[in-house]
Amino acid sequence: MINHIDVSSMLRKSVCELYSNLVTRPTGAAVRCEIELELDRIGDRALTVIDFSHVGLLDFSCADEIVAKLLLQYVSIDAPRREVYFVFRGISESHMEAIEAVLERHKLALVTQHADGKSRLIGIVGLEERRAWEIISQLGAGASADVADVADAIGLSSDDAERMLDTLWRRRLLIRYDNGYVAVGSATIPSQPTRLDA
């Protein structure tokens, strides 16, 4: 099931009806709590679109509270909280600056989706991991790859490829599906235009 969370609505609901900018830590923390409540309602296994289309400004403090701390709870090599996958949409150039900074700080990664339907992996990911994700992503909507496909494409042993894909799954950048893996972002359809307001 694909769920959609409009961050701007979360802001108005949790902080103030009149605000359209995501600034300050208390604001970010309140919005994240509201998103977490939504996620609690969604269930234990879900793909969720986090939509920034109607957000004006996103500063570093808010990006840290909303994006980084949200990911840190649901994306962990050791013990991720439930099986929730995120796709981030409606990210403008200025949002991207703040988001990339916090991803780098916490060594996190996420998938953004653009109006052209293409998904991009941003943040801190190893070169081979990125290549594996791109190979699977390029297979197209919902198509899965297995360990052997990736091992062949990248030139890794089967064991190494398996470990790498497992890591990408634990980081919630790949979805484990039947006996293969689907790239997060390839299973959703874009509904919002790319932000150009920089």
Binding site: T24, L57, L58, F60, S61, S94, E97
Partner: peptide, 12 residues
């Protein structure tokens, strides 16, 4: 936007 972000951060 960047200018406003900077302003927000120094005020915070």
């Amino acid at each position: 936007m960047r200018f406003t972000m900077a302003l927000s951060e120094v005020c915070q």
